[in-house]
Simulated scan of single mutants.
Amino acid sequence: MRLVTYRAGGGMRPGAVVSVDGEDHLLDLSSISARVEEILADEARLALVRDAVAATDAASLPRLDSVTLAAPVTPGKILCLGYNYRGHVPDGVDATANDPEWPDVFVKTPNTLAAPDDAVVIPQGATDVDYEGELAVVIGRRAQRVSIGDALAHVGGYTILNDVSDRAWQRRQSQWALGKCSDGFAPLGPWVVTADEVPDPQDLLVEVVRDGVVTVSQSTSTTIFSVAFVIHHLSQVLTLEPGDIVSTGTPQKLAAAQEAHRPLGDGDAVTVRISRIGELTTTFTVAQEAAR
């Protein structure tokens, strides 16, 4: 199932996306729960949603594009990985030779969260803003010191995160926070695909398209640290709660894209698409100087 949060009546409501003849419609779920996080955390609620989806006449529902989507969940924590995809190596070379022993983990603060259709505002003075298309894990069950074998049982679903980054600020310090945490630098969505729809998170194709050109294309099978390991690893230190986001890193840009790369600017558009999940398109605009 695909679960969304949408704006209605001055508030937020959960919904399920139901397709008919290739067109997405919206089933309101507010009679079942107030938040997507609560649905993911409760098998009984999930069963009610599945029953409601199966029983609905999708053609009678409003079109999904008639509503305004919010971020599908409101995470208490957004935990991200740095280098987590192996690059291309020549034949005969051990691809794992340069693997780090542990994941490089950083956080994005709550002000970074953005809805799937929100434009990202490039701050004044930012000279090197970049995109990172990532598979994002949504925690469904509380996870504290879980084993690798049990880790995926704590996943509620998967979504897409664009880890927008200001490289100039990122390079100014060993800690990355100021390069990662400008307002709106974490577009998320457009929905959460429940975990039962993604039997193997290590078998997904992650692609990024910038202005019509594919700049990233790599399988999650090439990650250094699996989703299961990352959840296990993080849960040894902190408790993961329903709705928390664990973003699993971005593949390297393709060689031609690296050579042609330029910082994001006004009017640029970036689409992150992941097999079995969907796609997230983000447009960028430049902050206007405030009147003096």
Rank of each mutant, 00 (worst) to 15 (best):
Q173I: 04
L79C: 07
K108Y: 07
S33F: 01
G87S: 09
S226H: 04
V107S: 11
L79I: 14
D266L: 03
D104I: 02
H154F: 03
Q218N: 10
V20Y: 15
T248R: 10
P201T: 04
Q218G: 03
D130G: 09
L152I: 11
G184N: 02
P110V: 01
D65R: 12
R50L: 06
T271Q: 04
E38A: 08
G87K: 09
A168Q: 13
L161R: 03
L26K: 06
S275A: 05
V192D: 01
G278H: 05
R63A: 07
R276L: 11
S221K: 14
D118A: 08
G76I: 00
G265Y: 10
R171Y: 04
T239V: 05
T74C: 05
E197K: 12
E43H: 14
T68D: 08
V120S: 08
I277K: 11
F229L: 10
D104C: 11
R273S: 06
D128Q: 11
T248Y: 13
L280T: 01
T285R: 12
W169D: 14
G184M: 07
G92N: 07
A95Y: 12
A257M: 09
P190A: 08
D203C: 10
Y158N: 05
V4F: 06
T96R: 15
P199E: 08
S275E: 08
L27Q: 10
L64Q: 03
L69A: 07
E23F: 10
T112G: 01
K180S: 05
T220N: 01
Q170V: 00
V138Y: 02
S182Y: 10
A95H: 10
G179N: 09
S66Q: 09
A177E: 14
S174F: 12
A114Y: 01
T281M: 09
F284S: 04
S165M: 11
G125H: 15
W191D: 03
I245S: 00
V93Q: 14
E132I: 06
V120F: 02
E207N: 15
P123W: 09
A70G: 07
V36R: 03
V146S: 01
D21A: 13
L46R: 12
T112H: 02
E101T: 14
E101N: 14
T239I: 07
T96N: 10
V53W: 08
D200G: 07
A44G: 07
I277W: 05
Q144I: 14
R50C: 04
S66G: 02
H261V: 12
H232F: 07
M12L: 14
S226L: 06
D130T: 06
V137C: 09
V53L: 02
V20D: 12
D196H: 09
E37Q: 10
Y131W: 03
G125W: 13
M1E: 02
V120G: 04
A59I: 13
D128N: 11
V49I: 00
L3F: 01
T222V: 12
V93I: 10
Q258H: 15
D117W: 08
S147C: 11
T194N: 01
L40P: 06
V193R: 03
H154E: 06
D42S: 01
T112I: 02
A71R: 08
E207L: 00
D211M: 13
T248P: 07
T239W: 01
I39Q: 05
